[in-house]
């Protein structure tokens, strides 16, 4: 599935998306494929699935997880809290990917350890640009010695 882009020397960024909405998963996938950064995307359709995935043995952990807040079975906030309380998942960056633009939600997720808060846009190119920016900055945090504790980004 992974396409090897032209500048094939670079390492691949592992990305996961947990979203119960099929359309949104589709848009996301299309958007990320549109970006020049080399990524490997895993799609999960709810929170429980994500947690199960993360707990698989020998799994190559994603560098970045996009997490919808409003999901059945296990919602985004619960996942966030679980991930942040698991030392094994310390290095994973979490981007909240939600329609909610309530300041309260935003602050709560940041406080609970989210690194990025991304509102679902209503325009594909905006989505692609946003994802690209998140990936870029995330990539910087992975490749340059920036302090990941202070990695906060609101888009």
């Amino acid at each position: 599935m992974n396409k090897i882009p032209a500048n094939s020397g670079k390492q691949i960024l592992n990305v996961a998306l947990a979203d119960d909405d099929e359309d949104d998963r589709l848009f996301f996938q299309e958007a990320i494929e549109d970006i020049s950064i080399r990524t490997k995307l895993s799609l999960l359709s709810d929170g429980q699935e994500l947690m199960d995935y993360l707990n698989l043995p020998n799994i190559i952990l994603p560098n970045l997880i996009f997490l919808d807040l409003n999901m059945p079975i296990k919602n985004g906030m619960q996942c966030l809290k679980e991930i942040r309380s698991n030392p094994k998942l310390n290095d994973v960056c979490i981007a909240i990917y939600s329609t909610s633009c309530s300041e309260n939600d935003i602050e709560e997720t940041f406080v609970n350890g989210a690194n990025v808060y991304l509102n679902k846009p209503n325009n594909f190119s905006k989505l692609r640009d946003s994802i690209e920016k998140v990936l870029q900055i995330n990539w910087q945090y992975h490749t340059s010695n920036l302090n990941r504790d202070n990695f906060l980004l609101r888009l």
């Binding site: 209503n122 594909f124 905006k126």
Partner: peptide, 17 residues
């Protein structure tokens, strides 16, 4: 806020596609 906005947002996404 959410349920009504969701489908609309998707409509707009499809429009932009």
């Amino acid at each position: 806020s959410h349920d009504l906005q969701e489908p609309l947002r998707k409509i707009q996404m499809f429009i932009s596609r």
